[in-house]
Simulated assay, not measured.
Amino acid sequence: MTTSSSAPAEALHIVCPHCDAVNRVPAARLREEPVCGKCQKPLFTGQPVDLSSARFLKHIERSDLPVLVDFWAPWCGPCRQMAPFYAQAAQRLEPAFRVVKVNTEEAQDLAARYAIRSIPTLALFKGGREVARQPGAMDVNNILAWVQQHAR
C-alpha cells in the first residue's frame, strides 16, 4: 500500500504558545519536541498557556489539536486550589491537547461570550467549537478522566 497525496493530511496545525505563529507539524513527530518555525521555541512546554482575549481565538480556531481551557480568576480559592492539578494534567495531556488558562478578570469579554457563570470552569474546544464544559474544581485524575470522556 502506498501513500502519496494523503501524507500532507497527516500534518497538524499547531499554534505556538510563545509567538502565536501557526506551524504545520507531522502528527507522527508530535512527541519529538517540535519547535516553532518562527521563534524556535518549543511548541509544547508541559505547562498551561495563559491566553489573553487577543490570543484566545487564534489558539482555538487555528489549532488542529483539541484545546482544554480553564476559565479562572486570581481571587477564586477553588481556582487556586485546582491550579497545580491543572498543571499536572497539562504535562500528561500534551502533545495530544493544547492546555490553556483564561483569567476571566482580564478577559471579561471571553467570559461573557462563553457565558461563564462559575469558576473554575473547564471547556473543551475542537475545531473552534466548544464540545464540553464542566464547572467546579477537580483533581488531576478527574480532569484527565473528564477530558478523555469528551475527547472522542
Rank of each mutant, 00 (worst) to 15 (best):
E61H: 09
A11S: 12
R113K: 07
D20I: 01
P66A: 01
A89K: 13
V131D: 10
L12I: 10
L122T: 13
A96N: 11
P34N: 13
A87R: 07
D64A: 11
F71I: 03
L68V: 12
V100T: 15
I116W: 07
A90S: 03
E10T: 13
V67Q: 14
L12W: 05
L43E: 05
Q40T: 05
F44H: 03
L51M: 08
P78D: 07
T104Y: 05
A27P: 00
A73W: 14
I116L: 08
L43I: 01
E61T: 06
A21V: 06
R55F: 00
C76S: 07
R24S: 12
T121L: 05
C16W: 05
F125E: 12
A28F: 01
A21P: 02
E61S: 01
L30H: 02
V15T: 08
P120S: 04
C36P: 09
E94V: 06
C19Q: 00
P48Q: 04
V99N: 05
Y114K: 00
I119P: 04
K41H: 14
A96W: 06
E94T: 02
W75A: 12
D70Y: 04
Q108L: 05
R98I: 03
H13K: 11
C36K: 01
S63W: 12
R62S: 05
A11T: 11
A27F: 02
V25M: 13
D20P: 00
